[in-house]
Amino acid sequence: MNTAMTQAPGSTMSQPTRSRRGSQALRLLQGYAFFYPAFLLVAAVLFVPLFHAIWQSVHAADYMEIGRFVGLANFVNLLMHDGGLRDIGLSIVFVGGSVLLATPLGVGLAVLLNRPMRWRAFFRTVLVAPWVVSQLVTGLLWLWLYDDRLGPLQAMMQSLGIRALITDPDWAMASLILTNVWHSYPLVMVFTLAALQTVPSEVIEAATIDGASAWRRFWRITLPLIRNTLKVAVVLTTLHTFNTVTTILIMTGGGPAGATEVLALRVFKEGFQFFRMEVAATAAVLILLLNIAFSLAFVRVLKSDHA
């Protein structure tokens, strides 16, 4: 097994052949050996393409090759003349709607699930399930559900005077948002549930004795105590929704008439449908910058709470 054990009992424990500096060097080597392979893989697959995208975004594209340097012209073009701002605006609508609906839903369900009840395990399992389903499947299931000819909602749609859902420019975004809420509320719910478990039950009992109604208990006592976790969940949901491509791709492809062309989708389409590499790269850099900006803002907000 280990060298110390094969020595005669009573002898010193340390390995006599290694000097202290030698064993330190071994540990250092071990550190490199353990860490670098992972890091190099990540660098190759994530950093190299990233730099390529950044590089491409400030150059023109010659089909698949990089052309001449153009400075920020691509960005100006995309934002000012090519609908870039509109795409960002649609992203904001999509994210805003999704998060504003998913958060209360997730928190509310978590509060309900936090009490002991019959069939609690069943409810928990079913209510978390949408998170486990792929974006593509989510899109497919809802696309079929929304179908205005053969889907089950057509009766209801007719009575409300809605011609179509996902194919109608007025309703497409709302339909997408609903689908996205379905997919993303479980994240908020799971995080909130975990946070609720950390609230000591005696504190809630004290509030009950103090005469607070259920709503007051939640608003004045529970919510402040889970606020930080809630913030994390909201930020994660926001970023995830902002970067969503697949669901939108399969449900609307950006239509009808560009009503749902969010920025993330734009990146995909420019690269894989229109093959305009410089626009794709520019949009990619844009979305990366927005991700970074938002993450930094979030870190700042989280830190300020711990003052």
Binding site: E202, E205, A206, I209, D210, G211, A212, I221
Partner: peptide, 17 residues
């Protein structure tokens, strides 16, 4: 509890942190 008009001191004090 509210209607009973009782007040309680818990073992862990249960102060609102």
């Amino acid at each position: 509890p509210k209607e009973r008009n009782v007040a309680m001191v818990f073992q862990s004090y249960a102060l609102y942190p």
